[in-house]
């Protein structure tokens, strides 16, 4: 199990996510805002590419391609001197972790990836065993924020007391490498910890807490009905639990909940009166960040205005 004191706050490469960039850019801005406020030393590289996650998990890219792309991003991290990768997307986290494991543990893969680099004249990308450590160099942004949660409590400005919120932890964070996360993987409490530190009243348990968001990569597209059914199941248990806000940690989940909630309401004839946010957006709000200029809440499909008004933010 990962320990909180093992989470670095220096030399973090804030790993951009395609889905954050294209759907909820406020997550990135809110994360930077938090990092700045929390005094975290980070860097964003314009050379860092997509992790391949989307293509990888729709069965398009081979593991070797994915691993080579990751090796390139590791070289980016290395070259800019920010070797601690902090992902905003849980799939980036999983992809990078697995690629790093392979590069360190499988000589044949490493040799093959490096030979591709050499063949293409990209010597500077060559990966040497141990360049990065899958356990001590690859993190989810939430872990970093979680490790500073005492500071958050001190800095919180918005009074969220009485807010009933629930957490949805990302599958590719806690189910992918359960032995390498903070806390018990059967009951991840990172989001709860951060939101709790900001004053929210977190639901201890709800039915289908561990159910996936339903996106399932290709599933949302090739089996849309099942995909939405899963999401609806989840929304139903949240409704029963009477929450106002669902917090997540991955743009894929975010799309599934926020973008699809109105679609589900229409298709299943149900109505949900709760809203969605990434935990970084929520923590930034708590610290007094602007809901639009920092958290980018205008990009959401489920309008947050009532929520913001209720807590005196707008």
């Amino acid at each position: 199990m990962k320990k909180m004191e093992d989470i670095p706050d220096r030399k973090l490469l804030l790993f951009k996510s395609c889905m954050v960039s294209q759907e909820y850019p406020g997550i990135e801005k809110a994360t930077k805002y938090l990092f700045d406020r929390l005094g975290i030393d980070y860097f964003v590289s314009e050379e860092q590419s997509c992790c391949t996650g989307i293509g990888h998990y729709v069965d398009l890219y081979g593991q070797l391609t994915t691993t080579a792309i990751a090796a390139r991003n590791f070289a980016v991290a290395r070259k800019c001197g920010y070797p601690n990768i902090a992902c905003m997307c849980s799939t980036c986290y999983a992809i990078n972790k697995e690629a790093c494991e392979l590069l360190n543990g499988n000589e044949e893969v490493r040799a093959q990836v490096n030979s591709v680099f050499r063949e293409k004249g990209l010597e500077d990308l060559v990966y040497a065993k141990g360049d990065l450590d899958e356990r001590t160099n690859i993190f989810h942004v939430l872990e970093v924020i979680f490790s500073k949660k005492e500071l958050l409590t001190e800095m919180t400005e918005v009074d969220f007391s009485g807010l009933k919120a629930a957490a949805h932890h990302a599958c590719h964070y806690y189910k992918f490498r359960p032995e390498d996360m903070i806390g018990n993987p059967e009951n991840p409490r990172l989001i709860d910890g951060v939101a709790g530190a900001c004053g929210a009243d977190m639901l201890r348990w709800y039915e289908d807490r561990s159910l996936t968001c339903g996106m399932g990569f290709a599933q949302l597209h090739i089996h849309k009905d099942t995909s939405l059914k899963v999401t609806q199941t989840k929304l139903e248990s949240l409704r029963k639990a009477g929450v106002e806000l669902l917090l997540h940690m991955c743009p894929n989940c975010h799309i599934q909940y926020d973008r699809c909630q109105p679609v589900i309401e229409k298709e299943f004839g149900s109505e949900y009166d709760f809203v969605h946010m990434n935990i970084a957006q929520f923590a930034a709000l708590a610290l007094g960040a602007d809901p639009y200029k920092v958290c980018g809440l205008q990009t959401h499909s489920v309008p947050l205005e009532n929520f913001l008004e209720k807590y005196g933010i707008i």
């Binding site: 018990n184 059967e186 348990w205 561990s210």
Partner: peptide, 10 residues
């Protein structure tokens, strides 16, 4: 309670 999926203690 180390296996919270079974709800012991919850």
């Amino acid at each position: 309670s180390l296996k919270p999926q079974y709800g012991y203690g919850i």
